[in-house]
């Protein structure tokens, strides 16, 4: 296999991993952010700290513990094997689970902040008009916090693309399965193949920059629209 086609395969694996991770993060992160925003308890800070851990922890620490947990001899690994028939460690599923944990704060934090800012006022009004909790979420919460959902999704996706430590520990560098861009780049550098390393590095740099610019552009537009509405409301 040539370097280029191997790199393209790594790119496809990376995008697949990031997309699957982003979807799972939205499904888990939204209710989690909701409860953290609404929950009033002194234990709340503890859970907020757990969610924020990946921001400060070396990814290799998370990767190390996940590697132990995913091994066929540990309980989670064993359960996975008996349920799916395949090993969890060094699989695509393993790097997705690792990415979900690793990118969790990038999705939960913007959503939690948005839900806190939204408050209860509009939700109470919706309840008095006969809307139940799920109805209220889709008819009021989501449309009013759309900008934060976009930010959360893109940050979760982009941060997963840029991940290295966790994947290195639990992925095992299997082409087409767990070999992602950041690892392919590391391999090139190790082999002194700087030309290919440059292509990957510059590509990742530019793609990330474009993606983040898009987030800020969308966020600014949506926010300024909402602000405009609220400003007029106050007059």
């Amino acid at each position: 296999m040539t370097d280029i086609s191997a790199d393209i395969l790594a790119l496809v694996t990376t995008l697949k991993m990031a997309a699957v991770t982003a979807v799972i993060l939205l499904l888990i992160g939204t209710p989690l952010a909701w409860y953290l925003a609404k929950w009033q308890s002194r234990f709340k800070v503890f859970f907020e700290a757990i969610v924020a851990l990946p921001l400060v922890l070396p990814p290799t620490v998370l990767g190390f513990y996940l590697l132990l947990a995913f091994s066929p001899t540990s309980l989670p690994g064993e359960l996975w094997q008996s349920a799916t028939g395949s090993q969890l460690a060094f699989s695509f599923s393993a790097i997705v689970i690792g990415s979900v944990l690793y990118s969790l704060p990038f999705v939960v934090q913007p959503l939690q902040k948005a839900f806190e800012q939204l408050g209860d006022h509009h939700l109470e009004a919706a309840a008095m008009l006969g809307a139940g909790p799920i109805d209220r979420f889709f008819s009021i919460v989501f449309p009013l916090t759309k900008a934060s959902f976009i930010t959360a999704t893109v940050l979760g996706f982009a941060h997963t693309v840029g991940e290295f430590g966790v994947v290195l520990m639990i992925g095992g560098n299997i082409p087409g399965e767990t070999r992602v861009l950041s690892i392919a780049l590391f391999d090139h550098v190790e082999a002194f193949n700087y030309a290919n390393a440059h292509i990957l590095s510059a590509g990742l740099l530019i793609a990330s920059l474009l993606l983040l610019s898009l987030v800020y552009l969308l966020g600014n537009n949506l926010n300024s629209n909402l602000n405009k509405k609220q400003r007029v409301t106050k007059l």
């Binding site: 006022h121 509009h122 109470e124 009004a125 309840a127 008095m128 809307a131 139940g132 909402l226 609220q230």
Partner: peptide, 18 residues
């Protein structure tokens, strides 16, 4: 629950959906 009581409430701060 509030949404099943069939009681209306008009708030001081109108709370229209923006």
């Amino acid at each position: 629950k509030a949404e099943s009581r069939n009681i209306g409430l008009v708030f001081q701060d109108s709370r229209l959906f923006p």
